[in-house]
């Protein structure tokens, strides 16, 4: 009985670590990080080998990947998309501008960072981030899952 109790959560964590599905949302970034994120799907990087899928609907996703400093218009949308993702969920901020505002800090229309709005679990700095860094970020985030 004791053993069973320990095994079940272990299996759950294992499954969660092995199949993180991401939802990509551009929260006002410049595109640079988005295309690098997309190129993760392609043969040179292929994140499917880690079990990562790029999902289309927020309801299917586990990790919300945001790129961009959160503009005023995008802000309510971002919140809503975050709410639509079923628990357990994580947020990954990709790019300097989604970590802190980056080059855009000081602009009148931006919030300056995802963490002003949502709890961020992992930051991936870089402007633009290299695909390897993004993979590294996702893997580190996944490894931190308890």
């Amino acid at each position: 009985m004791e053993k069973n109790k320990a095994i079940l959560p272990n299996i759950l964590t294992w499954a969660r670590k092995k199949s993180p599905w991401i939802l990509h949302f551009n929260s006002g970034g410049c595109n640079g990080c988005d295309i690098e994120l997309l190129s993760l799907l392609t043969p040179s990087y292929d994140i499917e080998r880690f079990g990562i899928l790029n999902e289309a609907s927020p309801r299917h996703a586990d990790i919300l990947v945001c790129t961009g400093p959160v503009t005023e218009q995008v802000r309510p949308r971002l919140k809503r998309i975050y709410d639509q993702i079923p628990e357990p969920k994580w947020v990954l901020a990709v790019g300097s501008c989604s970590c802190s505002g980056g080059v855009f800090s000081g602009a009148y229309n931006i919030l300056g960072g995802i963490d002003k709005l949502l709890p961020v679990d992992m930051y991936v700095p870089g402007c633009p981030c290299r695909p390897e860094t993004i993979i590294d970020g996702i893997i580190k985030l996944v490894e931190s899952i308890q």
Partner: peptide, 28 residues
Amino acid sequence: IARFQGRIGPPWYQPVADLIKLFSKEDI
């Protein structure tokens, strides 16, 4: 399909992991 597209593709336990994960997720 991954091989046809020049990618590596998922490891063999992938469907199992996906299934277990989906069953443990919140249902809204």
